[in-house]
Design a protein around this nucleic acid. Structure first.
Length: 489
RNA sequence: CGGGGCGUAGCGCAGUCCGGUUAGCGCACCUGGUUUGGGACCAGGGGGUCGAGAGUUCGAAUCCCUCCGCCCCGACCA
């Protein structure tokens, strides 16, 4: 049978594309830049969404929903935000179609039905939300407001890649309002921490926590906190951001409240989001040439039981009992009843889909009361007694989860360097992409010059980076700490 | 928007340069049979406005013109 997936070593980005389509995560759509998220991909997103949603609720947030369309006049209110997103906005100009008088059967936007005010399809919702918050907030007693929304947004990108960058994507966006700067900053950092925990504990994806440089900051934010992950090709992927917005939006939309001293003050804001991009991150962190490798905590299906060579009543009886035990432990498991395909085909198929554990049961196994247990991450197989198998599988799933994290962490360490001279910096970026900790003089000019020459950008100023006197890798000017450089997705 | 590539069955492709019966192959699909511990085999079968439009010609997947779409690389970006 022909190889379905381009090997990573041959062409990493083709490998990624092949995988996304072959594993049934997504399909191309009739709309340029937009994809169809197929059931397997959406199941992953649902698992992510459910876990994140619980984490948000546990930190005091509630969900709401705001409109897809933003009147242009609102959109332009916060200037930096508007400017930052303006060049990638889809705009609704008409509200009706009519048949084309010159081409029968064809439709045109009805020139009589031009909108008086054009509507921007939200690239993010700060504008519409802060316009609403103005009406909701009058007193310190109305604060804080801790709202999240699950939504789609549109950013008209020139070049798109499935999950990593699409014109329309699904995400969540938290928008909070606070009485004080300290409280808003605390919120921004708290959600940054939530994202970190989600990435590391659930996605098994180690991340570097840091602040964005001014140049890379969210348009309209005073501070942007990011989690940056390393993909298998050594490139960085921004996996989630949390913004301290200061009073920028409050001022732009006139959102003021009275303090307990009856003094009028502007509100402080945060916003934070992660998107379906995380699915791309997941794929590029763990998967291999045989297909997806999914962390058990997020895998739509955690255990598949394959009868060998095909279903029999005897195997089914054993499988049914095992399924009851596994399900009672909250494990997502299925028994493959299909008679058409042979075991080898099924093995390949479940590996492609990333199912963490496969249990093979055949007549030989039944005689000895054992089953063949195969783990997706290492491809190791072992024969284990059916007695107590559920416990062993539960343990194995945990092992896989932590092995994936450790493996990713190891890959990151191997490709992370501390660099003090420009030649070495250039050599790494050109020949063995990875994370580079280097001194930077803090200026935008230097940052842009480095990007120009090497394509590497400052991914973040790590929160835990130590004060350490040094000289800027590019300008030679003094610097007091290292920042994280990498080529980025 | 620049540079490259590609549109022929659900998918992957050959055929196009040099026009010529009924447009072909692999995978997938359907039927029957034999198989079955790592992507089975045999036999039979279904499926095509050859991206669209216009043109040249006795005759166009093939030549000319126009248009549309997609993919990759670059600029932009979560």
């Amino acid at each position: 049978m022909a190889k379905l997936i381009t090997p990573r070593s041959e062409d990493y980005s083709q490998w990624y594309n092949d995988l996304v389509y072959r594993a049934g995560l997504a399909d191309q759509s009739a709309v340029r830049g937009c994809m169809v998220i197929k059931p397997h991909g959406f199941a992953l997103w649902e698992n992510m969404r459910d876990i994140l949603d619980k984490m948000f609720k546990d930190t005091g947030h509630v969900n709401a929903y705001f409109p897809l369309f933003v009147p242009k006049s609102l959109f332009e209110a916060e200037e930096k935000n508007a400017e930052g997103f303006a060049k990638e906005c889809a705009v609704v100009t008409h509200y009706r179609l009519k048949t084309d008088p010159t081409r029968p059967g064809k439709l045109i936007a009805d020139p009589e039905a031009k909108l008086e005010e054009e509507l921007v399809v939200r690239p993010t919702s700060e504008a519409i939300i802060w316009n609403t918050y103005r009406d909701w907030i009058h007193s310190y007693r109305d604060l804080p407001i801790l709202i999240n929304q699950w939504a789609n947004v549109v950013r008209w990108e020139m070049r798109t890649r499935p999950f990593l960058r699409t014109a329309e994507f699904l995400w969540q966006e938290g928008h909070t309002a606070h009485a004080t700067k300290a409280e808003a900053m605390e919120e921004a950092l708290k959600m940054h921490e939530v994202y970190t925990r989600f990435a590391e504990d659930y996605m098994a994806m180690p991340v570097i926590k840091g602040a964005k440089s001014e140049n890379e900051r969210f348009a309209g934010a005073d501070d942007t906190f990011t989690i940056e992950a390393m993909m298998q090709d050594g490139k960085a992927l921004q996996a989630g951001t949390s913004h301290y917005l200061g009073q920028n939006f409050a001022i732009a939309f006139g959102v003021k409240y009275l303090t307990d001293q009856n003094k009028e003050e502007y509100v402080y804001a945060t916003s934070w989001g992660v998107s379906t991009r995380l699915i791309g991150a997941l794929v590029m962190t763990h998967s291999d040439d045989d297909g997806l490798v999914l962390p058990p905590k997020l895998a739509p299906l955690q255990v598949i039981i394959v009868p060998i060579p095909k279903p029999t009543p005897e195997i089914k009886a054993v499988a049914d009992k095992l399924i009851i035990e596994l399900k009672s432990k909250g494990i997502r498991v299925q028994y493959d009843q299909d008679e058409k395909n042979r075991p080898g085909f099924k093995f390949a198929e479940y590996e492609l889909k990333g199912v963490p554990v496969r249990i093979g049961i055949g007549a030989r196994d039944l005689e000895q009361r054992v089953a063949e247990v195969a783990r997706r991450d290492t491809k190791e197989k072992q024969s284990l007694p059916i007695e107590g198998l559920a416990d062993a599988v539960e343990q194995l799933l945990q092992d896989i989860q932590s092995n994936l994290f450790n493996r990713a962490l190891q890959l990151r360490s191997q490709n992370t360097h501390s660099v003090d001279n420009w030649e070495e910096f250039v050599d790494i970026m050109e020949n063995r992409p990875g994370f580079v900790y280097a001194h930077w003089d803090g200026s935008i000019e230097t940052e842009l010059a480095i990007k120009e020459r090497t394509k590497a950008t400052i991914r973040c100023i790590p929160l835990d980076s130590k004060e350490e006197p040094g000289l800027c890798i590019f300008s030679g000017k003094p610097s007091n700490k290292r920042v994280l450089f990498a080529k980025a997705y």
